[in-house]
């Protein structure tokens, strides 16, 4: 029972929600770069949020299903086709044995997820299936997917049942990225603070799973002192010595020494992750309490979808 990568994409990997509890050893959590969308893909299949899935970038892998399975494709729209027929996102899909999934063109978003009802059998390292390319551990042999890779699945499933549910497509068009201030916000001059909030910033081509580098108006720090290294987080916005910004993403280092001027809030990380080169973003300040509430609300929504879909799968006799 397996799937086969018949043509590898450029940066596709096995991920899950990340490797928690090891940052004091310098081991970053990693995991999916768009946690909300990845959890949604699992939720639509009524599965736990913690299972391994594939994270795809465009151009994405072409995949043969050696055995039948039920999958859900979520997040970025790369025009998925199964055996030449276009298929929907955010909807359970019955995939017959020997069928081929391919992605024809990027319509929206940057990262796409595939969740599998019959789970991928991949390497777990320190409690997580996430691919850690530096340590070469987790996922598929600790590396990005290559042509010819075969990934086992736990079993196969075949059904003629119709899945009469889907969630609305995710909209990644908004420019608005919400943030709260960071511990070195006051390092910025008043003019730079104003510019941070009121100017557009552009995602540059040197952005990857480690961080999204922005270009825009040069910001100046009134305090130039070097900082002692301390912990950073996904979403931390650092001011680089050249006055430009970087937002740390899933594969960020555990610690850093650049001023932390802001933090993108958790509920905006999905939207930011799905931005691509040359996309424009507009930072909007919110309060910490609002940030907490928005995140909790989104997670409750996911839990609701998961419970509902689990019940529906069960009603169809699928588990």
């Amino acid at each position: 029972m397996s799937i086969k990568i018949i043509k590898a994409g450029i940066f596709d990997s096995v991920q899950d929600n990340g490797r928690l509890g090891y940052q004091h050893l310098g081991i970053n959590p990693g995991g999916v770069i768009d946690s909300f969308s990845a959890q949604l893909a699992n939720a639509i299949l009524g599965k736990e949020f913690t299972g391994p899935l594939l994270e795809l970038h465009f151009p994405a892998s072409k995949i043969r299903f050696t055995n039948s399975n039920i999958i859900c494709i979520s997040a970025a729209d790369f025009s998925p086709y199964i055996d030449g027929v276009p298929v929907e996102l955010n909807h359970p899909l019955m995939v017959k044995s020997n069928s081929v999934l391919e992605f024809k063109k990027r319509v929206s978003g940057t990262w796409c997820y595939i969740a599998f009802l019959k789970t991928l059998v991949v390497n777990k390292w320190l409690g997580s299936y996430s691919t850690h390319t530096k340590v070469v551990a987790g996922g598929k042999e600790g590396r990005i997917l290559e042509t010819g890779d075969v990934i086992e699945t736990t079993s196969e499933i075949n059904t003629s049942q119709h899945f009469n549910w889907k969630t609305p497509p995710l909209d990644f068009s908004s420019k608005e990225i919400e943030f709260i201030t960071g511990s070195e916000w006051n390092y910025l001059s008043d003019e730079s603070k104003y510019n941070f909030e009121h100017c557009f910033f552009c995602i540059t081509s040197s952005s990857d799973r480690m961080g999204y580098r922005l270009s825009g108006v040069t910001l100046d720090a009134i305090q130039k002192q070097e900082l002692l290294s301390s912990a950073v987080s996904m979403g931390t916005v650092q001011l680089l010595p050249n006055g430009q910004l970087i937002v740390l993403m899933a594969d960020h280092q555990t610690t850093g020494g650049y001023p932390k001027v802001a933090h993108v809030v958790s509920s905006s990380l999905s939207l930011l992750a799905q931005k691509s080169m040359q996309d424009i973003i507009d930072f909007k300040l919110i309060s910490l309490q609002e940030a907490e509430e928005k995140f909790i609300k989104r997670q409750r929504y996911l839990q609701h979808i998961q419970e509902e879909c689990k019940a529906r799968m069960k009603a169809l006799g699928i588990e």
């Binding site: 940052q23 004091h24 290294s229 301390s230 995140f295």
Partner: peptide
């Protein structure tokens, strides 16, 4: 608490907002 990261002069503590006991009077922070 999901992670704790000691550094030179700081200690960062990461937490799961869904698990923090709810108190309507104050933020989870």
């Amino acid at each position: 608490v999901t992670d704790a990261v000691p550094a030179y002069a700081t200690l960062a503590v990461f937490y799961n907002l869904l698990e923090v006991p709810y108190d309507r009077e104050k933020s989870s922070f």
